[in-house]
Amino acid sequence: VTLFVASYDYEARTEDDLSFHKGEKFQILNSSEGDWWEARSLTTGETGYIPSNYVAPV
């Protein structure tokens, strides 16, 4: 399981994006799509795309 933590807050801009807060942890589901990764929030359980430059490895 690949875990990352949010370095910043992010507000979703499309329905496919995932909003999150600094400190929130994610399981990365797919990182092969470039700068936007499909992730599941371990806080909310929601799945969506997050900007990879807003998160760091745990």
Rank of each mutant, 00 (worst) to 15 (best):
T43C: 13
A12V: 00
T44R: 03
G34S: 12
E38P: 05
K25A: 08
L29N: 04
A39H: 00
F26H: 00
A56L: 12
E33P: 10
Y49Q: 08
K22L: 05
K22G: 04
F20M: 09
L29H: 04
Q27D: 07
K25S: 07
E38H: 13
A39G: 05
T44I: 00
N53R: 12
R13N: 09
G48S: 01
H21S: 13
R13I: 11
V55D: 03
F20H: 00
E24N: 05
V58S: 08
Q27N: 06
R40L: 11
Y49T: 07
Y8K: 11
G48F: 04
P51T: 01
V55H: 03
T2L: 14
Q27E: 14
T43W: 10
K22A: 11
A6K: 00
R40H: 06
L29K: 05
Q27S: 07
T47E: 08
H21Q: 12
Y54R: 08
E33H: 13
L42G: 02
L3K: 05
G34T: 12
E15F: 10
E11H: 09
L3Q: 08
I50W: 01
Y10K: 01
V1G: 14
P51N: 09
S7W: 14
A6P: 04
S19L: 02
D16R: 15
T47Y: 08
A6F: 01
V55G: 03
T2I: 13
A12C: 06
T44W: 02
S32F: 09
S32Y: 09
K25P: 05
E46G: 07
P51E: 03
S7C: 15
W37D: 01
I50L: 06
D17Q: 15
W37F: 08
G45Q: 06
N53T: 10
I28E: 02
K22C: 07
V58Q: 08
K25R: 11
A56E: 14
A56F: 13
E11R: 07
R40K: 11
G45Y: 06
F4D: 04
I28S: 00
Q27I: 15
S52E: 03
N30I: 07
D35L: 12
Q27G: 03
I50M: 02
R40W: 06
I50Y: 00
S31Y: 12
L3M: 10
V5R: 05
A12P: 04
S31K: 13
S32H: 10
W37R: 01
P57C: 07
H21R: 14
